[in-house]
Each structure stands twice: as structure tokens, then as C-alpha cells.
């Protein structure tokens, strides 16, 4: 039986505190095994008739380091490192209608629902003159990895007399790393967010990948020595096999 998951808003740090919005996510946990190829995620719920829905999936605001290119005369070289923080590692947005038609500029910025608001919250260290280009470059990299997406559709609303059920189905990106993700669901009516709720989605390694990742973290020296030995044995083993198959070549003078 699929559990109905209603997570209090307090789990999602500091936004407005409206009544909880009833919705559920399946699966609640994505298990990443050896032959994992992404997963289908479904979000269902109900809103007040006449309301619209926006869903935003966010990863943690973990800082990330990048090389930054700069111009030195006629040539472009790596001018140093930048650390980008204040933005989610993953951001997927879906809605029942174009977001701009549902909310005003201020509300979109407050709920961080478009590129401009994400760029505005981005912190770049160290700061420099080309920060706008850095912000655009960050989003470009994320889009290329398919971990940032801004869809103007996806959420399907069905109107009825006393409630409006909605559904959203999407493919979880293969390149999204294991971790905890927040799924924020906004009910929008009359140009403002009337209800908001937050679901948690965990992506966890299981089986052999989990064991190997655990070994590399907790017994790093053993893992390192094992990796070297396995690699060397693989190399000598292939040599042994090819020597048997193709025959031994004798030494020669050069």
C-alpha cells in the first residue's frame, strides 16, 4: 500500500507556514543498484478547485568549486577557482500553467522559481567583474547535465466539484547523485501561493554500490591498496591470457 505522505512544512526550512497540502510521492526512496538507470517519479495530490500547481524539486545548497576562465591579452586561461553557493545542486520545476502567468515577479523571486531568482541568490566567492557571466555559466553547466530544468507544464489538473486532483510524472535524472531532495508543491490562486507543502525524496545506494562506496569512505587505505592490486592483477592477467591465446613473442635485439 502506498503511504500517504504529508510532511509538515517545518521540515522544509523557513518559508511561510500555511495549512499542509495533501499530496504524496512514489517512490519515496529511489534505490540505486548496480544497474540503475534512473527512475520514474510520480507526485499526486489535491488542491482547491480553480487553483494551479507548481512543483519544484531541489537538491541541497552544497557549495561547488569550478575553474574560472579569464582573458589575458589575446588568450583565455584559467584565472583561478570560484566557489558557488546559495543555489541547489539540482532544480527541476514543473507547473500546470506557465509560472509567469500564475505569480507576479516578487512572488517568483521569493519562492525561487525561475532562473533569475536562482541567479539572484547565487553567491560567488571570490567576487569579480564577470559575475553575471559566471551565474549564466553555472546554469548552462547544470542544464547540460540535465540536473536543472524549467518546464512550463507537466502537472495535470483534473477539475471536480469539491476538489481538484493533480498528478505529475517525470523521469528522475540519471546524473543526479545520491542524497536527500526536497519536493516543494505550491498551490496557487489569485496570483499568490495559498498553500505549500514539502515532501522528501531520498536517493540511496543499495547492494554492491553501497558496499563499495562505504568501503571507500570508511576503509580508505584498504580500498586504495585493493584498487591498486586488482588493477595490477587485471593487467598481468590479461597479459597471461593474451600470451596463451596469441602465443609468446620472444625478445629481440634493437
Amino acid at each position: 500500500m502506498t503511504l500517504l505522505l504529508v510532511v509538515p512544512l517545518s521540515l522544509c526550512a523557513g518559508r511561510l507556514a500555511p495549512e499542509p497540502l495533501a499530496c504524496r510521492i512514489t517512490p519515496r526512496q529511489i534505490e540505486v543498484g548496480a544497474f540503475y538507470r534512473g527512475a520514474d517519479v510520480k507526485i499526486e495530490g489535491t488542491v482547491t478547485p480553480g487553483s494551479k500547481v507548481i512543483v519544484a524539486v531541489e537538491g541541497s545548497d552544497r557549495p561547488e568549486s569550478f575553474n574560472r576562465k579569464g582573458r589575458f591579452g589575446p588568450i583565455w586561461l584559467t584565472a583561478g577557482r570560484v566557489r558557488i553557493s546559495g543555489v541547489p545542486s539540482l532544480f527541476l520545476r514543473f507547473s500546470s500553467d506557465p509560472v509567469e502567468t500564475m505569480l507576479g515577479r516578487d512572488a517568483i523571486a521569493r519562492y525561487r522559481l525561475d532562473e533569475a531568482s536562482l541567479k539572484a541568490g547565487m553567491r560567488i566567492d571570490p567576487q569579480g567583474s564577470g559575475d553575471d557571466a559566471i551565474r549564466a555559466g553555472y546554469l548552462q553547466l547544470k542544464r547540460a547535465r540535465e540536473t536543472y530544468a524549467f518546464a512550463e507544464h507537466g502537472v495535470i489538473l483534473a477539475e471536480s466539484a469539491d476538489c481538484a486532483p493533480f498528478t505529475l510524472g517525470f523521469r528522475w535524472p540519471e546524473k543526479a547523485p545520491p542524497g536527500d531532495y526536497q519536493v516543494r508543491v505550491y498551490e496557487v490562486r489569485g496570483g499568490r501561493v495559498t498553500h505549500e507543502t514539502c515532501l522528501l525524496l531520498s536517493v540511496v545506494r543499495t547492494g554492491f554500490p553501497a558496499w563499495l562506496a562505504g568501503l571507500s569512505e570508511e576503509r580508505a587505505s584498504v580500498y586504495g591498496i585493493t584498487a591498486v592490486l586488482i588493477a595490477a592483477l587485471a593487467g598481468f592477467g590479461i597479459d597471461f591470457v593474451t600470451t596463451r591465446v596469441f602465443g609468446k613473442k620472444r625478445a629481440r635485439a634493437h
Binding site: 554500490p209 563499495l212 571507500s216 569512505e217 580508505a220 587505505s221 580500498y223 586504495g224 591498496i225 585493493t226 584498487a227 591498486v228 586488482i230 588493477a231 595490477a232 587485471a234 593487467g235
Partner: peptide, 23 residues
């Protein structure tokens, strides 16, 4: 071999599955 050991011990960034497929 030295670099692999040091990267494993210090950074935990050696992916053995990746390395063996490449190998």
C-alpha cells in the same frame, strides 16, 4: 599506483568499477 593509493586515502575519489571497465 602511488597516485591511486593517495587519491583513495585522501579524497575517496577512485571509482573501482569505472577503473576496471576502463581497464
Amino acid at each position: 599506483a602511488g597516485v591511486t593509493y593517495m587519491q583513495s586515502a585522501a579524497n575517496h575519489t577512485v571509482d573501482l568499477v569505472l577503473a576496471l571497465l576502463l581497464a
